[in-house]
């Protein structure tokens, strides 16, 4: 940007320039504050000496962090969510990555129909996805519970995996694969030693996305899980009488864990680029 001789500008222009340069930053500070208020609140109240109902501040304690499973059912709900999340993530990541390679690397008939089938679940409200799947399970006399929930999670995660991995495949420089071919690598070797490692960050990102979608899902889970309690269901049910502070401990831990994973991933990437 060229620097104009500022002092010669009229006052009005100078003010508008300052705003043009800094208003957006001020706004961004407000934006981030807004984003973080509930997170800070959740973190803060994880130290509340609250007993069963964590509605008002009653003093600082570390007990909730020392004993995160102290409240009844918190940890079994968390365990269910993690199990469902891992199973759904692995399955959806594999199925979605295969589709992404088919779409990103091949020409075939029925391509636009495939694209539509990938897009539709993302354009359908969760309440419809959940209700329709439950209605079908009931029609086949399958009781809602653990496996129906896993099936449902895989279903809504696949599309997001496909979109994420496909974007990564599309951004690859085709010359890298050509170079491998020029160096007498056959198709299989090129795929294994060049294409796949290059697409890997996309697959990892997709898996992370799938896990967080699955872990955080409430609506579809609520329809298909029957009496099984997942972590979001636990929070929803106990919201009326106040959520135990241990739930805040778990929520905050998830936040820090995810932050560490993302930052570590970026550092690894940066090292590789250098």
């Amino acid at each position: 940007m060229s620097q104009a001789p500022i002092p010669t500008l009229p006052f009005g222009r100078r003010v508008s320039r300052w705003f043009g340069r800094n208003l957006i930053r001020i706004y961004a500070v407000f934006g981030f504050t807004y984003l973080f208020i509930p997170v800070i609140y959740t973190f803060g109240f994880s130290f509340n000496d609250a007993g069963k109902s964590n509605l008002t501040w009653r003093g600082f304690t570390l007990n909730n962090w020392k004993n995160p499973c102290g409240a009844p059912d918190v940890c079994s709900a968390l365990g269910n969510s993690i199990k469902i999340g891992l199973l759904a993530t692995v399955t959806a990541t594999i199925l979605g990555t295969l589709i992404a390679f088919a779409l990103g690397r091949h020409r075939f008939r029925g391509r636009s129909a495939t694209n539509l089938l990938i897009f539709l679940p993302m354009a359908t409200p969760e309440v419809v996805l959940g209700a329709s799947l439950l209605a079908m399970f009931l029609a086949f006399r399958i009781n809602p519970g653990f496996w129906p929930t896993v099936i449902a999670h895989v279903m809504f995660c696949i599309s997001f995996v496909v979109v994420t991995v496909k974007a990564r495949i599309a951004s690859l420089d085709p010359r890298l694969e050509q170079a491998a071919m020029d160096l007498y690598a056959n198709e299989r070797e090129t795929f294994r030693r060049v294409t796949l490692p290059l697409v890997m960050p996309g697959i990892a990102g997709a898996a992370l996305l799938a896990f967080s979608l699955s872990f955080d899902d409430f609506i579809i889970t609520n329809f298909n899980s029957g009496t099984l309690v997942t972590f979001p269901k636990f929070v929803y049910v106990s919201a009326a009488r106040g959520i135990p502070a241990q739930a805040n401990v778990i929520g905050s831990s998830m936040f820090f864990l995810a932050l560490i994973i993302v930052i570590a991933g970026q550092l690894v990437n940066r090292k590789k680029v250098r």
Partner: peptide, 10 residues
């Protein structure tokens, strides 16, 4: 980052 804390908790 804020969205790693459960949607319902927030």
């Amino acid at each position: 980052a804020p969205f790693f804390t459960s949607f319902l908790l927030r």
